[in-house]
């Protein structure tokens, strides 16, 4: 699956200015899945599958490698727990409340709040990290101006290949997508 490596280079000279790329519509998840494998094997890098729900196993069909999101969330969660513990420790040192004859150094009572701090940091970093890794929020996007594209959120399956991709060629890419089973291919302008 060497096809996933980004091919650097100048965009294809034949690309018309002001074109975002090509969108191709596919009739169902199975065809989309196989078309994704075709596009992957053809060596494209800047392309994506758009579907109303995540198609099972599509990451492999597209050749997407796991990223560092879980690692980041885990580290931030642990950081949160550490901060929570440190904060409680500071508070108990700054304003010592002697109660029930318990030693001031008892760490066990700090566990519940430490845990809650860890949870809240994990939750925020999962949501915000997901948005950040996806470059969202992005309320304006060339694709969202395309009427056909808006139906993806209902029941359509679309593969979009960007004109920025080094291998992009308006005619060849279109033929590849049609050969892969696309029912309709359209160009999207980059307004």
């Amino acid at each position: 699956m060497s096809s996933t490596t980004t091919i650097t280079g100048t965009p294809n000279a034949g690309t018309a200015q002001g074109t975002y790329g090509i969108i191709a519509e596919f009739p169902d998840p199975a065809t989309t899945f196989h078309a994704a494998e075709v596009v992957r094997d053809a060596g494209y890098a800047k392309w994506d599958v758009y579907s109303p729900f995540p198609i099972h196993g599509i990451d492999e069909a597209m050749g997407i490698k796991p990223n560092k999101l879980p690692l980041m969330v885990g580290l931030l969660g642990l950081t949160g727990a550490a901060l929570g513990f440190a904060f409680q420790f500071f508070v108990r040192t700054d304003y010592a409340i002697v109660h029930q004859g318990k030693p001031a150094s008892a760490w066990q009572v700090l566990v519940p709040v430490t845990f809650e701090f860890g949870v809240i940091f994990t939750a925020f970093s999962a949501l915000l990290g997901m948005l950040a890794f996806n470059a969202l929020p992005m309320w304006f996007h060339p694709l969202l101006k395309k009427e056909r594209f808006l139906r993806v959120s209902d029941d359509r399956f679309i593969i979009a290949v960007e004109a920025k991709d080094a291998k992009f060629d308006p005619e060849q890419t279109k033929q590849l997508l049609l050969h892969a089973g696309a029912t309709r291919v359209e160009t999207v302008s980059d307004e």
Partner: peptide, 10 residues
Amino acid sequence: MGWRFSTRHW
């Protein structure tokens, strides 16, 4: 948030 049902996002 401008969600566009991209698989890379999914």
